[in-house]
Design a protein around this nucleic acid. Structure first.
Length: 571
RNA sequence: GCGCCUGUAGCUCAGUUGGAUAGAGCAUCGGACUUCUAAUCCGAGGGUCGCAGGUUCAACUCCUGCCAGGCGCACCA
């Protein structure tokens, strides 16, 4: 980021306030927050510093405000200061400064909105991580949209982000899948075997079994038995496990493909089996925890003192690490994975989990803190459920019972951009009601098109000007002083807020702020476009407006990029 | 029973670490295309911010209690 914009306007205003306070013989304020007032008559920026500072400065708010106004240093950005209400300080920007500041947006281009406030942070961001026991469903699409936007946002502010998909390809769920898959294969070749209890009854397993039988040329029960016997002779993993591995590989491949179609790719795909269990990390972490005195034996099992570990969390009960029957629990494996693998390459972990895991958060956080990781180094964000409706009727989603709506189907019906944008106009921790019928019916008036359309219109102006052979000089050579309309001033001021919006969204882990802000920007642009023509005889005005529109288009494209949504040239 | 999330317009949701008269989209109603894309624009109606207290100059926002919905409380993952 260029030095001229590295210090934001509000920073400069704060500096002005502080120097004014000192010049007036008052103590500097510990904090000075700026907001954009809802109403234009309250100025472009406002601060309540005179009120919050009243106690420490031991003066009446209005007295402090008076002093600030009297001693405020001259800034070319500031046209005037006003005191209002109980002691608000309202700042009115100079129109000439506003118009000229457009140059910074244009000069920064695709870089505009990026910054370095998270520079040096190595973040490992895990999301989706659905069980490899079935295809991805709608809630996975929500997590994917949020996680991917989160990664883009954090990178834009300087963090080094590694995105990760963790595959739970071990334990009871894997075994249930393997047994279910074997049963489906046997049924596919005509054997009358019962389907296992606690299996995965979804139709996708029947399809997958059919594929397996076809690809291996198993044209009957005898051929299947020969196929399996060969493995038995070889020794090693059981036939059931081998079938399960095949099913998992196919399932993960399918998940990866759907996510790629959605525009979401991961830097790392890690496997519970290969990257943790096979490397003996589970045993290693038990030793580590033992050494630290964080465990005890009881009833033949090894327990973690979850109720005592942790600085800012405490679990409500201790947790088993090694079962009395032997073997580590998922929890033990997970501690090992976080500690040895994830923290090896990052100083900050962010996990997006579903609400069904929130009871798990306290124990894993406690474990991380017990292993010496500071509380803020390990963040868990709960992405709330998507309650699926079809014409107002709830649709239960359960992979176990085989009832769900696939992420693939969502993308076909609603489309990638609309789906992503819909998920990104909600807070991640807010439950979302998603009516498929309504979403399909309304997919053509999804708010995403409102934003994209603004971009397409702007690109269209550029095409028109090129077609008409209008010569556009470098931005620096254009006289922006022509931008005096209130709508033009308002648009530029919005653009100036953008870097701060991205910064705040990244810091709060809230990509939805960007989506809402883009809607507001488009909402300011469309009326302007309708009311004022760009291409016209007054060349000075035309070029200035073209510069403004180009900047708006640029920022829309930048913002949509952070959300993983396309910015079309035409619509 | 305990814990977490949520409760804001008819519906779906925002509300920027306490600010000034609580917003948007959809839906409803009334208008606007000879003009850079009408996937647009202009206007109207629509609210006890779940309820009740408390904190203070100021509460949708913070605290307490209650009500309602969702989720979780395994030697499953």
């Amino acid at each position: 980021m260029r030095r001229s914009v590295s210090m934001s306007l509000t920073d400069r205003l704060t500096q002005g306030v502080q120097s004014a306070l000192v010049a007036a013989g008052l103590p500097p304020a510990p904090d000075c927050a700026w907001e954009v007032p809802r109403q234009a008559e309250h100025g472009d920026y406002a601060t309540n510093v005179a009120m919050t500072h009243a106690k420490t400065a031991r003066r009446a708010p209005r007295q402090i405000a008076d002093a600030i106004v009297k001693h405020f240093p001259p800034l070319d950005a500031v046209a005037r200061l006003e005191i209002a209400g109980p002691g608000f300080l309202n700042v009115f920007l100079s129109p000439a400064w506003v118009a000229a500041s457009l140059r910074e947006v244009l000069a920064a281009g695709a870089e505009y909105g990026r910054g370095a406030d998270l520079a040096g942070q190595r973040v490992r961001l895990e999301f989706v991580s659905a069980n490899p026991t079935g295809p991805l469903v709608i809630v996975n699409a929500r997590a994917a949209a949020i996680g991917d936007a989160m990664a883009r946002m954090l990178r834009a502010r300087g963090a080094r982000v590694t995105t990760e998909y963790y595959i739970n390809d071990a334990g009871n769920q894997f075994e249930a899948l393997a047994r279910s898959f074997e049963a489906r294969i046997r049924q596919a070749v005509g054997e009358a075997v019962p389907f296992p209890d606690n299996g995965y009854p979804g139709e996708y397993l029947i399809d997958l079994a059919g594929e397996y039988v076809r690809e291996h040329g198993l044209d009957g029960a005898a051929a299947l038995q020969a196929h399996l016997d060969q493995w038995t002779k070889e020794g090693g993993a059981s036939a059931t496990e081998r079938l399960g591995r095949w099913a998992v590989a196919r399932m993960v491949e399918g998940q990866r493909r759907v996510l790629a179609d959605y525009g979401v790719t991961f830097d790392v795909w890690s496997s519970e089996q290969h990257d943790v269990r096979d490397r003996g990390l589970a045993d290693k972490i038990l030793d580590e925890l033992n050494t630290r005195g964080l465990t005890y034996e009881q009833d033949g099992a090894l327990w973690f003192r979850a109720t005592e570990a942790g600085e800012d969390v405490s679990d409500d009960k201790d947790r088993v690490l090694r079962r009395s029957a032997g073997g580590p629990t998922y929890f033990a494996v997970d501690i090992a994975y976080h500690h040895y693998v994830k923290f090896a390459g990052a100083d900050r972990l962010i996990n997006l989990l579903g609400p069904d895991h929130h009871g798990y958060v306290a124990r894993i956080r406690a474990a991380m803190q017990a292993l010496g990781h500071p509380p803020e180094a390990f963040e868990v964000l709960i992405v709330q459920l998507v309650t699926l409706l079809r014409d107002g009727q709830p649709v239960r989603m359960s992979k176990r019972r085989g009832e769900f709506v696939l992420m693939e189907e969502l993308l076909e019906e609603v489309g990638r951009d609309a789906a992503r944008f819909t998920f990104l106009t909600r807070r991640h921790d807010s439950p979302l009601e998603f009516d498929l019928a309504v979403a399909t019916r309304q997919s053509s008036d999804n708010p995403v098109y409102y934003v994209q359309y603004a971009h397409a219109r702007i690109r269209s102006i550029a095409r028109q000007m090129a077609e008409q052979g209008i010569d556009v000089p470098a931005w620096d050579a254009i006289d922006l002083g022509a931008l005096t309309e209130p709508e033009e001033q308002a648009l530029i001021k919005r653009l100036l807020d953008y870097p701060e919006v991205v910064r705040g969204a990244a810091r709060a882990r809230e990509p939805h702020r960007i989506a809402f802000w883009l809607q507001e920007l488009a909402g300011a642009f469309h009326p302007y476009y309708k009311a004022h023509r760009v291409i016209q005889d007054d060349r000075r005005l035309m070029l200035a407006r073209f510069a403004l529109c180009t900047a708006v288009g640029r920022v829309i494209a930048n913002g949509l990029e952070l959300l993983g949504v396309s910015a079309p040239e035409t619509m």
